[in-house]
Design a protein around this nucleic acid. Sequence first.
RNA 1: UCCUGGAUAGCUCAGUCGGUAGAGCAAGCGGCUGUUAACCGCUUGGUCGCAGGUUCGAGUCCUGCUCCAGGAGCCA
Length: 466
Amino acid sequence: MRWQPQVVDVIMGKVALDAPLTLAGWVRSRRDSKGGFSFVLLHDGSCFDGLQVVLDASLANYETEILKLSAGCSIRVSGVLLASQGKGQAYELKADTLEVLGWVEDPESYPIAKKRHTLEYLRSVAHLRPRTNTFGAMARMRNSLSQAIHRYFDAHGFFWVNTPIITASDCEGAGEMFRVSTLDFLKLPRNAAGQVDFSQDFFGKEAFLTVSGQLNGEAFCTALSRIYTFGPTFRAENSNTSRHLAEFWMVEPEMAFADLATIADVAEAFLQSVVSDLLNARDADIAFFTEHYDKQLRGRLENVIHQPFARMSYTEAVSILQKSGKEFQFPVQWGLDLQSEHERFLAEEYAKRPVIVMDYPEAIKAFYMRRNDDGKTCAAMDILAPGIGEIIGGSQREERLALLDEKMAPLGLAENLGWYRDLRRYGTIPHAGFGLGFERLLTYATGMENIRDAIPFPRVPGSAEF
RNA sequence: UCCUGGAUAGCUCAGUCGGUAGAGCAAGCGGCUGUUAACCGCUUGGUCGCAGGUUCGAGUCCUGCUCCAGGAGCCA
């Protein structure tokens, strides 16, 4: 088929000058000249820039419609593409006809006025905020980052596996879960002991929304060697912070015949690759975020590509923190988990770039992480990014059945996760993987401070609007 | 969930000692201009988050609630 050109095609120079052109989109602003014409800035979202449309007073609907256009009106314009006579843009569309597709009912109360809005306010009109520069840019960044992630894994032999959203494992080990049920909450079936009888529920047992696709991913890793998941994930934690969502997207590669060092290398190369792709694909959008939200953004992203990440063991990290001379609110002691303030120090002040911390104490990490030979630590790693904190968490998985059983037993996991044990009973292999919070990477890549601005419609405690 | 701060015009905010509401932007009208965060003039626009209380009188003081933001915990 033959596609209608969009603004991006004009900006990229793919549309011939002096040639007929039809564009459709939304009015950002209108400026009238008493020289006998008006300027309308048309955006169609295809790229950061809009295109200036020049409308002569001789147009049939100039008085009746064009002079009444306001921000948000949808229009279709046909005319000729010209080199712009004015400053500020290379091209402009000299219109022969302008058709109003949709008016804005009440321009005064149109939520996206021709002025600056706070991000907090725009969250309250999340259905209209994609029309702003910021959220249009964010949507394009989000898409380009997704595509880059798929591209990286595809290029390196990883298969995308769609792991289930609904799970019956109530102990996936990562926080509170949302219950999935078709039971009538007003008339819950009870068993003899007075407990809710979940055997009558849709799945014949309790079911939840997944908090991670990792365990299912491992099943495919132990057959296809290299796989990754990329999909929605749910946490019912009552977390009210700028870094948490109840529904978010996670990327979880799992690699067979790999150890911790290998997966750390993969994680670093992966981040460098997707950031590099982003810099190439979204120059104008990154320029905007750098100009308006974080002056150091572009430089920081270029650093990710050109500088190797810092690496240290947990034991070294503790030592660095203890010798830092900094007064921390929480104690720094071998065996305790690193707090936000510690992670921030390591990434922002000590290394001033992403840091990979490896070999954490076994006691503070998840059951599936592989015990190291020292008997105290496990083959876990976190990547800490300046301004974000933990952006990736990963590990080599415990492939030795006896050791896995030892760690599953106290958690009572053997019953529900028999299938997970099977992966060690039948042709077990060393393997490793990591989880990446997609929106956390996106906030890092855009310089935005609140993760709620990195997802189209944020779900957080107390709010599932739109 | 905890700590701190906040809620006043469509938006961002000011509002003194408790005395009946103000600005900028937006919007509307007019002027000017190959304009582009335009500019100049005029105009419209308010259940001061909700519910109680104190007071002759509450945007202002008190209590409770709701919502929002930042930080913490949990985590990705």
